[in-house]
């Protein structure tokens, strides 16, 4: 990779940050260059962000008509899925799935609710709302 292959302007996705990448300069020596994000990198990051946004939007729509609990929306919004949430809380996946159902979610004990909230980095009360 040559210094001129590295985009200098920080991509909006990276909020003005630059990453260090290794380039070969004209004398054939390796040095560090500041990259604002290559096309490949920016594209796949966007795709990964969109994936969770899509899941969250879908969960939001279903939560509004009572087909799922608000917790599923928050899970995707915090870029988690059932597996990551299960690992982060230490609650088995089948239990997590069950807790995501609206009827079961409504009866969730404060202790379990707090465990979910802690793992997602949200307040327990926020899990019950859709904002």
């Amino acid at each position: 990779m040559r210094p001129e292959d590295v985009p200098a302007r920080s991509n909006p996705l990276f909020e003005g940050q630059h990453k260090a990448v290794y380039v070969v300069d004209a004398d054939g020596h390796y040095r560090i260059a500041q990259s604002g994000g290559s096309e490949a990198e920016v594209t796949v990051t966007e795709e990964a962000v969109h994936w969770f946004e899509k899941l969250a939007a879908d969960a939001l729509a279903r939560a509004r008509c009572g087909e799922t609990s608000p917790m599923e929306y928050h899970m995707f919004r915090q870029r988690m899925d059932v597996l990551t949430l299960s690992q982060a809380t230490g609650i088995w996946q089948w239990r997590v799935r069950r807790h995501l159902r609206p009827a079961r979610f409504a009866r969730l004990t404060p202790v379990l609710l707090a465990r979910y909230a802690e793992a997602m980095g949200l307040a327990p009360d926020q899990l019950k709302t859709l904002d």
Partner: peptide
């Protein structure tokens, strides 16, 4: 971290 780089 920029929001778009924050994953688990």
């Amino acid at each position: 971290f920029p929001v778009n780089m924050r994953f688990h």
